[in-house]
């Protein structure tokens, strides 16, 4: 070790500390997760949401097009018929069972694209860690948006089953 190196040593320390203090003053890029959550872009493909119409009826008709479009086959849908006593969706048919295996899902968004009623979309949620594989089977209750969340979204696609409307008699 030369004398020069010995003398330069403290200099390096000062320079390093200077870097540290410089970054201390800069704006932070990390957040205090989980107390604070990141705001994701609007088209973020996070955990799915099953939507409702403004009147609270479910948009999903249980057509299984999402299930067949899904490249990994992680959606299971079973349909049932609406009755006057139990009306779940506007048309004749609703999804009695709707399950997504979130561990298998690759968050590609094909289901969203396949859905003819915009019933399923990819949502903002990304914090999906849990402690047992079984907890990753999202059932319909997990996926459905809460009742009030849909209020204000009044548009109902024109292709929605027309049983809702009084059939015109010829």
């Amino acid at each position: 070790m030369s004398i020069r190196e010995v003398l330069e040593g403290p200099l390096y320390i000062v320079r390093a500390l200077a870097t540290t203090f410089k970054h201390n003053a800069r704006p932070r890029v990390t957040i205090e997760y989980p107390e604070r959550q990141k705001v994701v872009p609007p088209r973020h493909r996070g955990r799915h949401i099953l939507h409702r119409y403004a009147d609270g009826l479910e948009k999903c008709v249980g057509c299984e097009l999402c299930a067949i479009a899904c490249p990994v086959g992680c959606i299971v849908v079973e349909a049932a018929e609406n009755t006057p006593e139990r009306r779940v969706s506007p048309g004749e048919r609703y999804a009695k069972r709707y399950e997504i295996n979130l561990l298998r899902c690759i968050y590609c968004g094909m289901c969203e694209e396949a859905c003819p009623y915009d019933a399923i979309t990819m949502g903002p949620r990304y914090d999906l860690a849990d402690d047992h594989p079984d907890k990753f089977i999202a059932v319909k209750e997990d996926l459905l948006e809460p009742l009030q969340a849909s209020l204000g979204d009044t548009a109902r696609p024109s292709a929605a089953p027309s049983a809702q409307a009084e059939p015109r008699k010829w």
Binding site: V61, G62, C63, L65, G91, E92, R93, P116, Y117, A159, P161, S162
Partner: peptide
């Protein structure tokens, strides 16, 4: 013909 394919058993 209605656009019923998603809810139609024949679909």
């Amino acid at each position: 013909h209605p656009l019923d394919c998603p809810i139609c058993d024949k679909g």
